[in-house]
Each structure stands twice: as C-alpha cells, then as structure tokens.
C-alpha cells in the first residue's frame, strides 16, 4: 500500500459536507435565490456537537446506538471506496459485498432506532425506507455485477480502476446503463428528490428525515455527517464509473475524481431542481426500472 491510498477517505472525511453545500447552492441558483453558504453543514455540525442531547424516556439503548453504529458503518465503508483511479486503502476480492452490506447495516440501525421511539410517524418512515432499500438493492448489485464481470475483479478499487476510455468505447451501452441505474440508486438511497424531498418536514411524505426527527445535539450531527458520507461514497462509485481519467499519476487522477464529485453534486442539484417528487406509489416503479436497466447491462456484458 502506498501513501496515495489515504487520499480517497481523507477527501471524503473533509469534503463530504461540502458536496451537500454545492447541491443546495445549485438548487438555489435554479430557483433564483442566493442560497445558504457553501459551508453551512460544517457550521451546523459544529453547532450541534457543542450541544447536549435529550432522550425520550420511552427509548432504549437502541435509540442511542443508532447514530453511532450508522456513522461507524459508513466510515468502514469509506475505506473500501476508491476515488477514480486512486485505489482505496483496503481492497480485497468481494469487498463490494462488504461495502453494500455496511450501508445496509447503517440503514438497519437507523430503522431500528426509529422504531424504538414508538412514534407512528417514524414507523411509517422506517417502513418506507426498508421497502425502497429492498427495491434498490437488486439494481445496485446487478449493476456492480456487470462492472465486475467486465473488469474481471470483485474488488471495488480494481473494478473502477479497470474502466478506461477504451472500455467506454467497446462497452459504452452497458456502462451507460449501469451508470443510469446507479444514479437512480444514488438518488433513492440518499433520499434525494424524485424519491424523497430532503427539504420538507411534512411527515406524511418524508422517508429519511422522519426517521431522525427525535435526535438532537451530537446525535443529529452524527446522523447528518453519516448521511453526507453516504452520499459521498455512492457518488464516488458513480464518478469512478463515468469519469474514465486514468493518467497513472495519483494526484492528477485524484484531482479529476474531485472535479467529478463536484460535477456530480451539481448534476444532483440540477436533477432535483427539474423534477417533482414522485408519488410514493410510483417510486417502486422507478426502482424496478433501474433494476431492469442493470439486468440489461449484465446481459450485454455476459453475452
């Protein structure tokens, strides 16, 4: 392992909240507003960390463990995800399964903690989160399987590093399908707009936000930071796929990866500004559609 492998996780830890700032500024630009400061989430996190926490008497240790386990899981997932051609510190065959299930562990504890409060609203959010996650998982796995078969490796770092411009020329349609499917999974998993509206606090329509209503102080900071990191890791996968800059010089590759991440944030903001939120009954259709695209990509690669 060389020193450059520390770049992807370090960049994620430092810049993940900035990604959300860029998304918000893009949305503000489309709406004709100036928007909140780019670094707003950093300010929020510092403010929340200095506060104390209040816990309801009906909750148990599960509720308190939720944000901590969630943040720990996504931090563990972070060391598996490369940034463009720059490999991750930890890479082994099959780490894409570990990656996917660490994100599942995070969600599992968020859901358990939401159920632990005994609030009916949080229960509703938990049920929706689990339903959509179950539908998004096949799309993610079939898409990753297609890329894995294409590159002949089951490790995320090797998989992403094997994609270069030549692969895009020879396998363009399949990679494009996988990128589309992963993009939909990215939006669904991070509760972005066509699936869930991160801005609203109307309980009837919320998914992720409603599950974390009862947190405050450092716990809320953990939840927010964890969500930002989750957005970063999934976006990093997508950027690794669609930005095939493989110069062989780590710093240059990392710069291309970072530029890709920022453009991904702008793209997410643009998608969120141009789409209305789907009705809840339509969301499964979108996710099943993503699964169909992944399946088609896998078929094209396997042939």
């Amino acid at each position: 392992m060389d020193g450059t492998a520390i770049l992807p996780p370090a960049a994620a830890l430092l810049l993940a909240p900035l990604l959300l700032g860029v998304i918000n500024r893009t949305k503000a630009f489309f709406a004709g507003r100036r928007g909140r400061p780019l670094l707003q989430l950093y300010f929020d996190l510092f403010k929340l960390l200095r506060k104390g926490a209040t816990y309801s008497r009906t909750t148990t240790w599960v509720f308190r463990a939720g944000p901590i386990v969630g943040l720990a899981a996504v931090l563990a997932a972070l060391v598996l995800v490369p940034l463009g051609a720059v490999g991750a510190p930890l890479a082994f065959g099959g780490d894409l399964l570990v990656f996917a299930y660490l994100l599942c562990l995070m969600r599992f504890f968020t859901v358990l903690a939401a159920l632990d409060t005994g609030s009916s609203f949080e229960g509703m959010g938990a049920s929706r989160e689990v339903l959509f996650a179950a539908l998004a998982e096949p799309a993610l796995f079939l898409g990753l399987a297609a890329v894995a078969h294409q590159s002949g490796s089951l490790s995320l770092s090797a998989m992403i590093a094997a994609i270069d411009p030549a692969t895009w020329v020879s396998r363009g349609p399949a990679l494009g399908l996988v990128a589309t499917a992963l993009g939909i999974v990215l939006l669904a998993e991070n509760s972005r707009l066509p699936v869930d509206d991160p801005e609203t606090h109307l309980e009837l329509t919320m998914i992720h936000e409603v599950m974390v209503l009862d947190y405050g102080g450092p716990d809320l900071a953990f939840v927010l930071y964890g969500a930002a990191l989750k957005l970063w890791v999934l976006a990093a996968l997508l950027v690794g796929l669609i930005v095939p800059v493989r110069t062989g010089r780590p710093l240059l590759d990392a710069a291309a990866g970072l530029a890709g991440m920022l453009s991904a944030a702008v793209a997410i903001g643009a998608v969120e500004s141009s789409r209305a939120r789907l009705r809840l009954v339509r969301v499964p259709k979108l996710l099943v559609g993503a699964m169909a695209l992944s399946a088609l990509a896998l078929v094209l690669v396997l042939r």
Binding site: G172, L177, A292, L293, L296
Partner: peptide, 17 residues
C-alpha cells in the same frame, strides 16, 4: 448494432412502465 438494440430494449421497458 449494440446501441440501437439497447435503445430498443430500454424503450420496451419504458413502455412496460
């Protein structure tokens, strides 16, 4: 051929949905 067939199959799925 491949891009055109992908368009064909994707429109099939979109029609179903």
């Amino acid at each position: 051929m491949e891009p055109i067939l992908v368009v064909l199959l994707v429109t099939d799925f979109l029609l179903l949905g």
